[in-house]
Computed example of a mutant assay.
Amino acid sequence: MVLCSGGNAYANYTPGKTTSPPAASGGSSGKDIYASAGTSRIRVTQDSGPTGGNRGTLSSTDVAWKPPACWYEPVFRPEQLKKFSETVGGGDVSVHESWWGVDLWTDHYRDKQDSENWDDTLSTAPGYKDYNIGKDGYFWRSVAPDKTDPDSWDCGRIMFWQDAAEIPKVPNAPTSKTLADYAYNKIEVPGTQIELKPQAEPTVNLPTWVWLDKGTFKDVKVRAELPNTGLWAETTAKPVALHLEPGTDDAETFPASGDCQINDDGSIGTPYTKGNADKTPPCGIRYLRATNGTPYQLSASVTWQISWEGSGGANGDLPDGTFETTQDMNVQEIQSINR
């Protein structure tokens, strides 16, 4: 058998016997029926956090971490699969296998003809009689948001039956942790447009204070649910630190690491007051050279601590995430300063 990792294999019933799909991809007029194993049914809602303005997704601080490459989800009830098989007859039966032709679907799911799973052993997938009509449950299919990920081949079972209110006991079956990981990439956090004191345009050799009040950053909570499974997870991102990069080597940060801690009340730094222009701020920058037509790019990156809780009392932590924004910094140089 030849497997093409770059995309789907279009099976003429038996894996390895392939044909080209029709020009139009399979689908269904049913609102809740999809023919693509690249489309997850996980529903994601944001329970708290920003709903407008400049927002973006997090980058994990752990470069080795990634969400699951694939898992299984309930897709069809018996009546839905009957309609799909006998009227559409074209679509994904697993992540890397598609059946194009009504006979391929009806042979296996209506007429009890065995097929093969695309796993390491090409295990037998027993056929079904009349789509299991009269039984309570769902046909489950593998899902892979990125089919080019080599790990997505781990979900090689073709669509299979599972009784209602039960999670399949198979490798890569979904868990609340699966949903928490999935929600990680759906978290949108606010951008970081910091306020600068004593003036918006810094002056060479004078410290610029960075201050964000407690209303700027709040926890962001995202809820993910997989319908018809009872599985859910809430993933929470909590801001814990701000990191400053001045955009030039001719600058100093305060503290020297550039890491400004977020205070207990959610604020960052200490408010600037008149007369503090020559003092060292707890969070800030001092530029040592003026700009010359091209502004420095001040980078402000917030670190977010990620935790989750889910169905069945499950909970845990995920790698911290960061979100970075930049802003122009024009630095002036003057000969004398009156305070």
Rank of each mutant, 00 (worst) to 15 (best):
L81Y: 05
G52F: 10
P78C: 00
S60K: 12
T45F: 11
G56T: 09
T57I: 12
R55Y: 04
K83H: 09
A64Y: 14
T51E: 11
A69Q: 07
D92N: 15
D92W: 04
V93N: 10
G91S: 01
P50H: 11
S40M: 07
G53F: 12
R77S: 10
G49N: 06
G91A: 03
P74E: 02
R43H: 03
V88N: 13
A37Q: 00
G56H: 10
S94V: 06
K82T: 05
L58W: 02
V88G: 08
P50Y: 05
T87M: 11
F84Y: 15
S48W: 00
D62R: 10
D47T: 06
V44T: 09
S59C: 07
P50K: 04
G91D: 01
G53R: 14
Q80N: 13
G52R: 11
S59G: 14
G89H: 06
P50L: 06
A64F: 13
L81V: 07
G49V: 04
P50T: 07
G38M: 05
R55D: 01
A37T: 03
E97D: 09
I42S: 03
S40H: 08
T61E: 15
P67N: 09
T61V: 12
E73P: 02
G90L: 02
E73K: 11
P67Q: 14
V95C: 05
V93H: 08
T39S: 13
D92K: 07
K66M: 12
K82Y: 12
S59A: 13
P78N: 01
W71T: 12
K66H: 14
S40V: 06
W65F: 15
G89E: 04
G56M: 12
S59L: 15
P78R: 00
G49E: 02
Y72G: 04
K83C: 00
I42K: 05
V44C: 05
D47R: 01
F76M: 11
S94F: 05
P74Q: 09
T57Q: 14
T61S: 15
E86H: 09
T61M: 14
G53M: 14
R41P: 02
V93Q: 05
K83Y: 13
N54V: 15
W71H: 09
R55F: 06
S48G: 05
A37D: 04
Q46W: 00
V93A: 15
A37W: 00
F84V: 03
D92I: 04
